[in-house]
Design a protein around this nucleic acid. Sequence first.
DNA 1: GAGTGGTCTAGACCACATG
DNA 2: ATGTGGTCTAGACCACTCA
Lengths: 237, 237
Amino acid sequence: MSPIPIYEKIYNDILDKIATKVLEPGDRIPSETELASQYGVSRMTVRQALDQLRTQHAVVKRRGSGTFVALSYGRSRRLNKLQAFRFEADLENANVRTDIKFQGRLDPPSAVADRLGLKPGQDAIRVQRVRIVEGRPAAIQDSWLPCSMVPQLAQVDLIDSSLYRTLTELCRIRLSWAEQEISASAATAEQAEWLMIKPGSPLIATTRITYQDSATPIEYSHGWSRPEFPLIVRLDA
Amino acid sequence: MSPIPIYEKIYNDILDKIATKVLEPGDRIPSETELASQYGVSRMTVRQALDQLRTQHAVVKRRGSGTFVALSYGRSRRLNKLQAFRFEADLENANVRTDIKFQGRLDPPSAVADRLGLKPGQDAIRVQRVRIVEGRPAAIQDSWLPCSMVPQLAQVDLIDSSLYRTLTELCRIRLSWAEQEISASAATAEQAEWLMIKPGSPLIATTRITYQDSATPIEYSHGWSRPEFPLIVRLDA
DNA sequence: GAGTGGTCTAGACCACATG
DNA sequence: ATGTGGTCTAGACCACTCA
């Protein structure tokens, strides 16, 4: 069997057609039977591709009527995908710079060791960054990772200053899921200085644990963003 | 064919077994082949049930090894489900009271009319509430709804003070999905008074549009919560 | 009535994990 | 070597929508 499943190919083909505007929001896509004969596969295989598209809200199915490109596709999947970890992902056309405040190996505080499941004596790597959008400081990101899993991270230059890209591309680590807590806080003196705002100003405060697989934490991080950079979440019934 | 699909029954059966601790986190559930013969159905039907469970993170599949009850099931699906709209949903054992500050029919400001897709002259209903948890004010919720869709809402008593329950149970409206923007803000004088905090204190600020179906808005709302009541989001690869 | 998606069958071969 | 889940087939009948 070919290395990539057929339904994956069908899925990608349709996603491409949406991205390149061959299929536009509201358009009907070929019926399941039609796609099956086009690709020379059985209908169940086509359905597998369409199910995947539906889960991601790329298409909407209407029984008796057809399958349609979702109206809102392209917007509104900001935070539900792990991809959103890349700070840049939501700011595609923006000019993003990064100021690395600290990067190195440390004995982690106990709160960090707990979240990462580290035993006493095991080191962690801390990466502390300020993200700058269009010349203005926008967010502070403070990440901790188990040293044993990514030893090289203590010295290496981050690809594009992106921890996400460095982990996936350089360290070959597959990020799987994350739990993120979102709150608000008043800027401390240091945060205020880094973000060029007044101490006490409200900030979006996030805490995140990212997992490699169902239960192995790979990153524990805190973030503080200026309110002009809100998070967007899509909720489903 | 029976009114409810077979895979739905299998799905519910397994979910029940998890809820009643017959199956505990980490346990292996019967193999697909085994379930197929137990229920007297084909394997594809069983897979449909299991896929549904996996999408909801109730189970984890491991190729060559089996299907297992997820370790974290029960926690961590807080904000991803529309059900989370019920303010109480995340505070199950907490004592929640509600102070209704305003409930009635109004000519909506243009920002509200825009989001709800109202034409000039069409009224809206505003419901402004303060949620009180364990005797302490926790959040302000300010909702706007199209009067034409829920005219009775102007006078009726909210079921349990829950807009979510009133809409679904009394108005028979099926909420479908929502887009929520999360930011932070400093408490105004009025907000500070209602929440019994100091003016200028940081608050979690949310803006939400809830839809009845793929594109019909039914609610536009703002919320301000004290930071002690963070939101939790699960992100997937 | 013709076409669509929803459900379901009874098989098959494969890649992978574990003993 | 055995058993698991991953992929796939070539059909089938049903419920629904729309012309």
